[in-house]
Each structure stands twice: as C-alpha cells, then as structure tokens.
Design a protein around this nucleic acid. Structure first.
Ligand code: MN
Ligand code: MN
Ligand code: MN
Ligand code: MN
Lengths: 219, 219
DNA sequence: TACTATATTTAGTCTTAGCTAAATATTTGT
DNA sequence: ACAAATATTTAGCTAAGACTAAATATAGTA
C-alpha cells in the first residue's frame, strides 16, 4: 500500500460512514482536495486490487479488505494523536497534520508498542474511537448538543468538526472533553443555546452546539 | 525536500565523512542500492537547488545548506532510534528500518518535543552522536578495538557496523555498549584477540574487533 | 419524454524517480 | 604515452500519481 492509496481508502471509509450509499467520485475529490479525474484513476487501481467495489458511474464502496486497511490507518492516526498530546504535550488542534504523516509509517511492532505505552487508549484527543488491532470499535451512544432538549444534558465526549479553528475556539471558551453540560434555554430566534457548563453559564451558537457530542446522563 | 532528496543528501554526508574528497557517483549508487545513472540525475537536481557542489565527472560534495539538511535528517533518525529503544523496548538491531521511515516526518515541534521527552540524549543506541538543533556534534575520541595494543583497553562506546546480524551477534556474546574491555592477547596468525570483558575473558575475531569503538581510559 | 445541468470518465500531458543501453570521460597499467 | 579498463553521463523508456480539456453518462425538470 502506497501512502496515496492509504489516503484514498481512509477517505472512502470516512465518507461512507455517514449515509451508507456508494461513495461518489466527486465527494472523494472534494474531501481530498484533488480532481475527480484523478479519483477515477485511483479508484480503478484500488478496484484492481480488490480494495473497493467499483462500477463505472455507480460510485465506490470498500471491500472487506479495504475496510480492514482503512481501520488500520485510522488506528495508527488516532494512536499517534494520543501520543502527541499525552507524551509530547501537543494541543488537540496541532496533532492532526503530524498524525497525517505518521499514520503511514509501516511497522506492526511500532504501533503495538505505542498502544502499550499509551495504555491502550479507547479514544483519541477529539473523542474519536480508536479501533483495536482487529478493527473493533467502541461505539458510544452520543448525540449532538444541538439535539439535546431543554433541561437535558450530559458529558461532552467528542467534537464533530475537529478543525484547528474550532478547537482553538473551544479552548478559548473553556469548553473541553469531559465537561458536564446542561441545556438551560434554546433561543427561538437563532437557535443559540444557554448552557450550564460546570459551575458557569454560557451562551453558544447553534453552530457550536451542532459540533459537540454529548453522552447523555445514564438514568 | 522530498524523501528521496533527503536520502541522497544523507548518503552523501555519510560517505563524505570518511575520506574527504568529493563523493563519487558510483559510491552513492552502491550505498543506496540504485544505479549510477539515477544518481547523476538526482545530483543534478540537488546542484540546481544549491544543496551540493557538482562538476561533471568530478564527484559531488555538500554545500553549507546541504550539510545542514543532512544533519537535520540524521538528528531525526537517531532521536527516533533512541525513542524506539527507550520508550518502546525495541532492541538495537530492530530500530534502523523504522527510523529510516520516521526520519522523514516533517515537524520541528515534533522533533524538539521528542528530544525533550528523551532528556536530550547525546548518543543513539549504536553509540553514534546525535546532532543538536543547530547541527552541533559531540565528537568523542574513540578508537577501534582492533587498534588497541595489548595491555590497553577502555569502554565500548559504539559499533561501526550496525547491521542487525552484527548486533545480534554481539547480544548473543554478551558484548554491549558500556562494557569495559581489555586487550589481553593478539594472535599473530589470524589477528584474533583475547579480551577481558567485565569479569570474563573471550576470544574474538579481528573482524569483530574492527567494528567496536573503544573510548580509552583517561589517564 | 426530452432537454439541460451535473457527475463521471477518457484521452492526453506533466513531474518525480527510477531503469537500460550507448556514448563519453577519466584513470590505470604497460 | 597510449590502450584498456573503469567511471560517468546521456538518451530514451517506464510507472505512479497528479492535471486539463473533451467526451459521455446520469439525474433533474419542464
Ligand atoms: Mn486527526
Ligand atoms: Mn495521510
Ligand atoms: Mn482525531
Ligand atoms: Mn543508529
């Protein structure tokens, strides 16, 4: 597997998660910041290697093998992100780019030992689950803060948008993973929310709420 | 800098160390397991970028800039090797291949933090010095065990050949960095040596002795 | 249903980094 | 000093992975 092939497979996996129809050529091109024609070329090569199912004009989906590889790359990406934060004191908005490179390093032993060093973490710094060696996931049932009704609440366990700008914004506003959040009011006018976070209260836009995952309080 | 360019620069640096004439096309090709014609192509490109001095048929040498880059890559390589051994319990014969990949990861912050995590090591697992951020070296005055006269000795501080097979051989024979070694006898016939190592005595071939660096006892 | 807009593929080109075979320069031995 | 051996470069080819422009298929709409 070349670096480029791995990036395609990973992208197809990510797009495929939400909405389970076949993934379109254009959506891959957009996500990878490349051109549709380049995608077509690569997709043909991946189909040749039995990593994707592909029928001209009908989009593409991962085969069993492709899925396995995607999960392997994602595992590496997220473990490296944990490493950068836990061992090298990177902040959560700095890790993605570096992990994008590190995810392509080839050594099973390296990744197993890294996993051990980090004490087998289940989630990465953005709250995304880390597949285990066999591709097994920890599915957490979580809900976007924007879906929580007034009076409800829970613990903030992840972000949907993990762009540096969003993450920095959260830092600036003292919102982080592990925080207890209550929805106190929802504004009719613009959908903004008044939330209780720890001891404090804050007004946040709908946009923000739509990018925070909440694990509802067990009852 | 592409990965390939970095590898060429690094190789030119290493060959240039021993014997300070210009480095020949063929020697680069041999070292990199590639063809002389490919080397010529790449060397032209590097000359274009002012990383090497190159005159047709006259060999090649690194410019100031090329030297800087070589030292940067070597620094990364050796720091990663230390990381693998110290933090992930790799053995010294397993680290090279992985470091060969890791040395091309691009992030100044990453390498600085790694350096800090490892407590600013001065030498890698094979006893090779690690350049600091500015390319500064710790030159140690060391000598091959094969050059030590009978009666002399010191501490084993490095290996010249760091192939896995040699390193495994040393492990098997309980010879490692930090060991105190005395030359007790040198056999006329085949140049083999009787050495005192710690409390024990051992017979080793000239070949072995010619690949162990010794720091002579201060007097 | 037919026309138009959009999505996708094809054809042809480019760059990087390799290769082989042939040409040319340098070095060595007599 | 010169011929032979060796080293190096040039010329031309290849594959991966991109791109643009043109062709074609699909989808949406009147
Ligand atoms: Mn990431
Ligand atoms: Mn990547
Ligand atoms: Mn992440
Ligand atoms: Mn080393």
């Amino acid at each position: 597997m070349t670096r480029s092939e791995e990036n395609y497979i990973k992208t197809i996996f990510h797009i495929g998660r939400q909405g389970k129809e076949a993934v379109s050529t254009n959506s891959i091109a957009e996500q990878m910041d490349t051109k549709p024609s380049s995608v077509t070329d690569m997709v043909k090569k991946l189909a040749e290697k039995d990593l994707v199912n592909y029928k001209k004009y009908q989009g593409v989906s991962l085969t069993e093998m492709g899925n396995k590889i995607a999960l392997g790359v994602i595992r590496k990406h997220r473990l490296w992100e944990v490493f950068l934060v836990e061992k090298l004191d990177f902040s959560w908005d700095e890790v993605h780019e570096v992990a994008e490179q590190l995810e392509h390093i080839k050594s099973d032993k390296l990744i197993d030992r890294l996993d051990r060093l980090l004490k087998y973490p289940k989630y990465d710094p953005h709250g995304d689950p880390i597949p285990d060696k066999d591709g097994g996931f920890e599915e957490r049932d979580e809900i976007l803060l924007s879906e929580v009704p007034v009076g409800g609440g829970g613990i903030c366990v992840g972000v949907k948008d993990s762009s540096a700008s969003f993450l920095k914004f959260l830092d600036k506003n003292n919102i982080g993973l592990g925080d207890h959040i209550q929805v106190l009011e929802i504004e009719e006018f613009d959908g903004s929310l008044l939330i209780g976070i720890g001891e404090n209260q804050k007004q946040i836009s709908h946009q923000i709420a739509a990018n925070l995952y909440i694990k509802l309080k067990e009852e």
